[in-house]
Design a protein around this nucleic acid. Structure first.
Lengths: 66, 66
DNA sequence: ATATAAAGTAAATAACACTTTACTTTTTGT
DNA sequence: ACAAAAAGTAAAGTGTTATTTACTTTATAT
């Protein structure tokens, strides 16, 4: 699943480590999600949505298949 | 995490099995999610949102802690 | 150019989403 | 009351999300 975390981070001038701290996950988790290695859990997606004050759908992009 | 699946199902007069079929998961998975035993994955949440034509936040309710 | 910060990557492990099978309890209809 | 459908529950197993530690590569600043 694609996401706009890198852009949203850039807008706030945050490093991956900054975002990781804000979301209470490891820096590697942020990196893996940004690189599309795996999808965040729903609670983590909610946390990101609250942090950026955006709906989940405006951060994560589920281009649906079948 | 709370959710409104039971109500949304009722509005369409669907059983847990009907919803499970529509979302391509097992009936037990629907039951467990409805009973709050675990949270759906983000892709499954997106699928439910599409099915009910609602934003994720209108189906799942993450009352945030800390 | 070189030091430093940031980002990328990888392996091992832990935690959780989801499945299958199977059984019990509750609800609904006649 | 009774049968049938729906919902609830549980255990064992699989795959994925997320963690930690640690190392390499890329970007930034002086």
């Amino acid at each position: 699943m694609k996401n706009r975390l890198k852009v949203l981070r850039a807008e706030k001038d945050w490093t991956q480590a900054d975002l990781a701290d804000a979301l209470d996950v490891s820096r590697q988790t942020i990196n893996a999600i940004e690189k599309g290695k795996f999808d965040p859990s729903l609670p983590l997606a909610f946390k990101a949505a609250r942090l950026f004050n955006l709906p989940i759908e405006k951060i994560f992009d589920d281009e649906y298949e079948a």
